[in-house]
Design a protein around this nucleic acid. Structure first.
Length: 231
DNA sequence: TCATTAATGTGTT
DNA sequence: AACACATTAATGA
């Protein structure tokens, strides 16, 4: 797996000719990020675009009490940067590496040069950002109208689909989330308290919709989606 | 192995 | 939902 292969896996660059990937490769230095460290913090005005080649990251905000709201998790092949959180005044988001990550950093100028040369990259960018906005809006709607049980199932189903590994588990057909998420971290993603997540998870476990262990969760996607459809 | 800390469970307001 | 407290599992000297 060379550097170019990684670049070809970035969703923003799909279907770009090899020569373009080589150009991007030359412009974007690769950098390894330690698990748990911050890649972007709100104060530093990095206008870079980050290409996530390996690992996973978490985008989150912090309120004045220090409480965190996780906006989304991204896996390899995704891009992130200041550009996607252009919340003008109030500080933007933190980005933290969930595991040891490999990123390429593409400067704003270089990115502009690239989209001038290859307008389809700009179109792809629009489509990626549109998709993210759609997902945020869906979660926002859930936050406003749905209870914790629904929000939690919605989140688990979504995470299972993007990060999940089919579980070589016991009887049921569970999908392992494969993120080491605590109840607190789940709560941070759905605007709930840690306690209500704990309670709701054990309820769901009783109904065989999920299985839980310490920082380990698996979902029965079929059951989960049935419940989500119902209400 | 023991002590400390982190994660989870539970009852009350 | 927030809080206080109990229980259990992970960590590391």
């Amino acid at each position: 797996m060379n550097k170019l292969w990684y670049l070809s896996q970035i969703n923003l660059f799909e279907e770009l000719p090899l020569e373009d990937l080589q150009m991007i490769d030359a412009m974007a230095p690769m950098s390894t990020i330690q698990k748990g460290s911050l890649i972007i913090r709100p104060d530093t005005e990095s206008k870079n675009l980050y290409l996530l080649k390996q690992g996973r990251v978490r985008l989150f905000k912090v309120n004045e009490d220090g409480k965190q709201l996780t906006i989304c998790l991204l896996g390899k092949g995704n891009v992130f940067g200041e550009t996607e959180t252009f919340s003008t005044g109030s500080g933007s988001a933190y980005v933290e590496a969930i595991d040891n990550a490999l990123v390429c950093i593409l400067g704003k100028k270089d990115f502009e040069t690239l989209i001038t040369k290859r307008p389809q990259v700009a179109l792809k960018m629009v489509s990626i950002l549109t998709q993210r906005i759609r997902e945020s809006e869906e979660m926002l709607e859930n936050l406003a109208f749905r209870d914790v049980r629904f929000r939690l199932l919605y989140l688990l189903a979504k995470l299972a689909k993007s990060f999940g590994q089919p579980s070589a588990n016991t009887a049921g057909s569970y999908t392992n989330l494969d993120l080491n998420l605590s109840h607190q971290e789940l709560a941070n993603m759905i605007g709930a308290t840690r306690e209500s997540v704990s309670v709701t998870l054990s309820q769901l476990a009783k109904q065989d919709v999920v299985t839980t262990g310490r920082k380990e969760i698996a979902v029965d996607l079929t059951k989960a989606e049935e419940i989500l459809k119902e209400r």
